[in-house]
Nucleic acid binder design. Structure first.
Lengths: 224, 224
DNA sequence: TTCGTACATCGTACGTCGTACGATGTACGA
DNA sequence: TCGTACATCGTACGACGTACGATGTACGAA
């Protein structure tokens, strides 16, 4: 009921767009985006459901803002190093962030207009590539390729029901192998068996493809 | 009301799981997956809402089945050619199919267990790579890399508000450039201007990255 | 011919959702 | 002192997924 002292930034108790969006992200991380409803979010904030609409025009706008928060968490490519190291860092950061907020990947499909953090990120990446000697066209190619890899990897990773080598080995032996008839899926059986025996860790998969892509992009630039 | 003659395959008029799922895919393609409700789907089939539950245990199961229909549409890597041509064809097919059903990308994030068509696809791809001389580990790397690229590209493409070079040029000049302050986003401005002037077609972007990736994978195999 | 049973269909109802609308209280400048 | 802008929220509406149970049809067995 009370209007509290006005501030640009969120006060510790009062609501604000920042606080609403941040709590929404926390809720989605914890319970999945399907469980995120305006009523639940309001309850988590100790407010009435309709109070949220003072800070957010609609649930769609809330989801847009949540995605932009995720982009804010991704490290920009650092300046002052070679382009490969810079792009490597930002890709690894992006993958970490998207693993923390897997729902973000699913939301991206339906959202067309990028938020401010997204734009800032694209600008920084493009700047890094252009300064490294990529032409506008080649920088565009590199951008598409790198982003596709990062997003696609995160999408696949989000669907994995295990983390780490141990869980993978357990799942492979207890779930995959028994469910895959060897005569119908001989190669998948072979893969599951060999990988589990070798202590394969899917978490290390990311850097392999990333480094391959970075190396493949190197000849496309004209060093200045 | 009437029970109609029993058949394994869907008769022309009666309901069946196949028909329900197919109509759901059509509805999602046309209106977006957010507009897909059990009631709307039933109406489109000329049935009552609850009738669908005779063929589908829940909406979740329906969504799973829809995704598997999408995987069925993707061409398997053809046998009898070199591995690069085979993987190239199936990647291009996958990208086409996912562009036709963009909602599928968004659904994948929340779904962990692959359907039968998905499994058949993975088996065929793994077989192709193994027969081309990739070790189990290298085939796994290649699989992850290629799938990440394809899915990630489709995800980004789904978010694009334009198709083809003309629409891109229009958007770049009418929307992007006016919305991006040149002092804050100099490189994005440069890119938009140069690409629009050069008649850049985002539809051709896919094969560039794909061929780069395929070439980068080539040295990883041990030809037999 | 009768009748039980399995198949297929659907109406109703419940709890939840997003949110339009308008009421209410507070703080502050005039 | 009072109007106005800010901030909060209760109520209500239509749509959602689906549990439950009723209903009708076809067909094999008696």
């Amino acid at each position: 009921m009370p209007a509290r002292e006005r501030r640009q930034v969120a006060s510790d108790a009062g609501l604000s767009k920042k606080r609403v969006v941040a709590e929404a992200v926390r809720l989605a991380d914890r319970e999945g985006v399907a469980e995120l409803s305006m009523r639940r979010l309001a309850r988590a904030l100790g407010a009435g459901a309709m109070s949220l609409y003072y800070y957010v025009a609609s649930k769609e706008e809330l989801l847009d803002a949540m995605i932009d928060v995720v982009f804010e968490e991704i490290e920009l490519p650092p300046e002052g190093t070679d382009w490969q190291s810079a792009m490597r860092r930002r890709a690894i950061s992006a993958r970490q962030v998207l693993a923390r907020h897997p729902w973000a990947i699913g939301l991206m499909e339906s959202r067309t207009s990028p938020g401010p953090a997204n734009l800032r990120h694209r600008e920084a990446v493009t700047a890094c590539l252009r300064r490294a000697g990529f032409s506008v066209l080649m920088a565009t190619h590199a951008n598409w390729l790198l982003d596709s890899y990062v997003y696609g990897f995160a999408l696949q990773e989000a669907g994995l029901p295990f983390d780490g080598a141990d869980e993978f080995a357990d799942m492979a032996e207890d779930v995959f192998l028994p469910q895959l008839p060897p005569d119908e899926f001989p190669y998948l059986n072979e893969s599951a068996a060999v990988l589990a025996a070798a202590g394969y860790d899917p978490a290390e998969e990311f850097t392999f493809g990333l480094d391959l892509v970075l190396a493949a992009l190197e000849p496309l630039r004209v060093p200045t």
